[in-house]
């Protein structure tokens, strides 16, 4: 998506409406309209990484111990990770407020 910070006139809009800055999707906080969030039960987790593979927003990152930790800035709460987890280690819990 064209960056909303970059709302410009026709003279200054990028050539062909291209986005010249790679990976600028990171600027979009897709997590701000989430209604539920995934909570990982480390007891059950076998570090298989299926959640990381399936998350459409690439919200998971692996920590030093090898667990997959969700970055709530980008998690939109779709629940795909919970559905795909082979160990049912992920529970979707409602966001408060």
């Amino acid at each position: 998506m064209a960056n909303s910070d970059a709302i410009v006139g026709w003279k200054t809009i990028t050539f062909g409406c291209h986005i010249l800055e790679p990976g600028n999707a990171a600027n979009f906080r897709t997590g701000d309209w989430r209604s539920q969030r995934p909570v990982v039960d480390k007891e059950k987790c076998i570090k298989c990484g299926m959640c990381w593979v399936f998350c459409p927003d690439m919200a998971y990152n692996q920590d030093e111990e090898g667990y997959f930790v969700v970055d709530l800035e980008y998690c939109k709460g779709c629940g795909i990770c919970a559905h795909e987890c082979p160990k049912d280690a992920i529970t979707m819990v409602p966001e408060e407020g």
């Binding site: 998506m1 064209a2 909303s4 409406c17 986005i19 010249l20 800055e21 790679p22």
Partner: peptide
């Protein structure tokens, strides 16, 4: 670079 993005 990205070509052909959404134009809001």
């Amino acid at each position: 670079i990205t070509m052909g993005p959404v134009g809001i």
